[in-house]
Amino acid sequence: MTSPAKRFDLPTVELETKPYWDAAKEGRLLLRRCASCGRAHAYPRPFCPHCWSEDVPWEQASGRARLYTYSTVFFNDLPPFNERLPYIAAVVDLEEGPRMMTGLVETEGVDLQLGMALEAVFLPLDDTLAAPFFRPALGKDTT
């Protein structure tokens, strides 16, 4: 029996981030919002990066976002990305304010424009993990 090739796309789930990854597996995107200053933040920390308050309850995000920028990647020799080329790396601004790194999917035939409306879609990474990606929210522009 040969050991599987090392793959580079799996997050290391930590105690402080487990709620996020558990929710992603259920198709929900979580943020944390500071009860002290009111600002939401992502990626989630056990305190507010703006005011350092430790009162930061989890909150479910709408999954609606705007495309800040992207790049279609044609070179990456790390598995499993080397088998997916080309794919789209993106940075999006969530409706709630925070920015996140992600990938774009279901873009065939879509003229990608910065600022366009997106919606979260959850894709499995392996048998136990899933991650939020985004796809164009066509005809569902919420401006």
Partner: peptide, 21 residues
């Protein structure tokens, strides 16, 4: 893929793609 890197691990943001973005 630990700490802050876990948030980009699933997406394959290569160094080149970051500058391209």
């Amino acid at each position: 893929s630990r700490g802050p890197m876990q948030w980009e691990a699933p997406y394959g943001h290569s160094l080149m793609s970051k500058y391209a973005m």
